[in-house]
């Protein structure tokens, strides 16, 4: 009996609150309809016009107050945002995400995906065409071709220089030369014609 007391008290309070709100709502609706009918009667119509000015002032004041309240609410929400973030982060940290992921069979999910249907929905020719339009294919081919040709040419030149050294080495050995060949043209400076 004692254990049920708090729940019983809470239940009673909630029931009372709901009943009160229901009654108030109905009363407001009824009084609104009555007031509308009364204001429409001729004797009240004149006095209504007289009190319109003070009501307008009060209404303006109400608008200003409502605006202030909204601003206060916004400021409050902004101020508690870090706190909410911290709490959410704390909750996320608490969750055993790895354990949850271990229990999810990703392979089974992937198996359920109809990849063929998915691929068929992709307009591959259009994508390829768009990509090719954006890639400067001509420049790319020209660059790579030039690189290959230059590498091949340089390789031939290096081989020829090795052959030069080989021939010179053999000749110099036969002639019993000790000193290396003098191959540097002093002050070589090429000035192109024109």
């Amino acid at each position: 009996m004692a254990a049920m007391a708090p729940d019983a008290a809470f239940g009673a309070a909630r029931m009372l609150q709901r009943a009160t709100f229901t009654v108030l709502g109905r009363a407001a609706r009824v009084s609104g309809a009555v007031a509308e009918a009364l204001l429409d009667t001729p004797p009240l119509r004149g006095s209504l016009a007289r009190i319109e000015t003070p009501v307008a002032a009060v209404a303006a004041r109400g608008v200003a107050l409502r605006h202030d309240d909204e601003e206060h609410l916004k400021a409050f929400l902004v101020s508690i945002e870090p706190l909410v973030s911290t709490v959410l982060q704390f909750v996320v940290d608490l969750l055993p995400i790895e354990a949850i992921l271990d229990r999810v069979d990703v392979d089974a999910i992937v198996r359920r995906v109809d990849v063929d249907a998915l691929v068929q929905r992709i307009d591959l020719p259009r994508i390829v065409t768009e990509v090719l339009e954006k890639v400067e294919l001509g420049d790319l081919i020209a660059d790579s071709t030039t690189n290959i040709a230059t590498d091949a040419r340089d390789a031939v030149r290096v081989q020829a220089i090795r052959a030069d050294s080989g021939v010179a080495g053999v000749v110099d050995r036969i002639l019993r030369r000790r000193k290396p060949r003098n191959l540097v043209v002093p002050g070589y400076h090429w000035t192109p014609a024109l």
Binding site: D164, V167, V184
Partner: peptide, 26 residues
Amino acid sequence: MSASSRRARADAVRGRRAGVATRYVA
């Protein structure tokens, strides 16, 4: 081969007299 290493090799031989094999092939 990168352009910089090509340039380095070209600089290494520039101005040196070519040997007989290269000249015969040319």
